[in-house]
């Protein structure tokens, strides 16, 4: 697998960005198409994660038994009317596949744009990594269907957010602000300490851990013991709180450098994780009923769980999608932090 994890990416950055960075304004103009396509991928992959989440929420993963075709049709040739007016399960499952295929095309476009626009070398590798990740994700989804296997559904669900995070990173590193930071930085009074990087890495790791734990709960196997399930729930909740406590710390730390491209996403992170905790509580309630620990709230009395209710499905699916958003945002914060440190190091040289 040729993914480029964010940390290595920036290590590369240190070596090559200096020589590959043409004078002001140049690179932004040069990778204009790559940037546009990266943005497009971000705008497509997030909905794709929503639809994928809905597929699981509605247990529609096995609504189409074959793959890569749909009921014997080529993916793109499956009759529109049967798709749109057929069962809802088939609608979202086939829609998920179609949208996934479009993302694949965009990923190809990104590689082409990166090569044609002669992007920095590591950015070119990033786009290749994204393409490979998208392809693997498609194949994983296919295996899940062909084997009818919920474990693969879980792996498929854990890998999707990585693809989304990579697309977000691509969009950030090809943006104009990535280069314009250079000027802003010279005015920066305080450089970031080394351990700020550590604080920035933690949310990435923790939010991914949360995604994996969440997937374990969502795709729980019938034979899992109640104890194991309870333990996973406990770890999931504790990690959520730790992560939320961490985000304001990170925000305060990165704000010191006075750069909005850095502190803004760090601020969103606080909001996202807070929202996510509410959504998580909501997901528990709509799946398993009003928990005894919340009995002190007046409106839980006699709460009725509704299987596959519309609003309920939206809450659960939003919990999944915001999870990816948190991972991607913390990845962006990390990449920006590394960038900041790199620039400061260069200025002072």
């Amino acid at each position: 697998m040729n993914q480029t994890p964010p940390t290595e990416t920036s290590a590369d950055d240190l070596q090559t960005a200096g020589d590959a960075a043409p004078p002001s304004g140049g690179p932004a103009a040069d990778s204009r198409w790559l940037h546009r396509l990266s943005l497009l991928s971000v705008l497509l992959v997030w909905p794709l994660i929503w639809v994928g989440g809905l597929v699981t929420t509605y247990d529609a993963g096995m609504a189409v038994p074959d793959w890569p075709g749909t009921y014997g049709y080529n993916l793109f040739l499956y009759p529109l009317s049967t798709w749109l007016y057929g069962p809802f399960d088939l609608f979202i499952e086939h829609g998920h596949r179609l949208l996934g295929a479009v993302v694949g095309l965009v990923a190809i476009g990104m590689v082409v744009a990166a090569v044609v626009e002669r992007s920095r070398r590591w950015v070119r590798w990033l786009t290749v990594g994204i393409l490979l990740a998208v392809i693997s994700q498609g194949v994983l989804g296919g295996i899940r269907v062909l084997l009818g296997d919920r474990t693969f559904a879980m792996i498929h669900g854990c890998f999707g957010p990585l693809v989304f995070a990579l697309c977000c990173i691509a969009a950030v590193v090809t943006s104009r602000t990535w280069w314009q930071r250079r000027r802003a930085v010279s005015a920066t009074p305080k450089p970031l300490a080394n351990w700020v990087v550590v604080v920035a890495v933690l949310p990435v790791l923790l939010s991914y851990l949360q995604l994996v734990l969440g997937a374990q709960l969502r795709h729980v196997q019938p034979a899992t013991t109640p104890r194991t399930f309870t333990l996973i729930v406990a770890v999931h909740i504790v990690t959520a709180c730790v992560l939320w406590l961490l985000t304001p710390i990170l925000f305060v730390l990165v704000r010191r450098c006075g750069d909005l491209t850095l502190s803004r996403p760090a601020g969103w992170l606080i909001l996202f994780v807070g929202t996510q905790i509410l959504l998580g509580t909501g997901s528990w309630i709509v799946n398993y009923g009003w928990p005894s620990v919340l009995d002190f709230l007046p409106f839980g009395e006699g709460f009725l769980v509704r299987s596959k209710g519309f609003l309920d499905s939206i809450i659960v699916t939003a919990h999944v999608a915001v999870g990816s958003l948190i991972l991607a945002t913390s990845a962006v914060v990390l990449v920006q932090t590394l960038r900041q440190k790199y620039l400061v190091a260069h200025e002072s040289n």
């Binding site: 009923g289 009003w290 009395e301 006699g302 709460f303 009725l304 769980v305 509704r306 299987s307």
Partner: peptide, 11 residues
């Protein structure tokens, strides 16, 4: 379903 418990309505 059984309101006030985890037992959902499968309406």
């Amino acid at each position: 379903g059984v309101p006030g418990t985890g037992m959902p309505s499968f309406a």
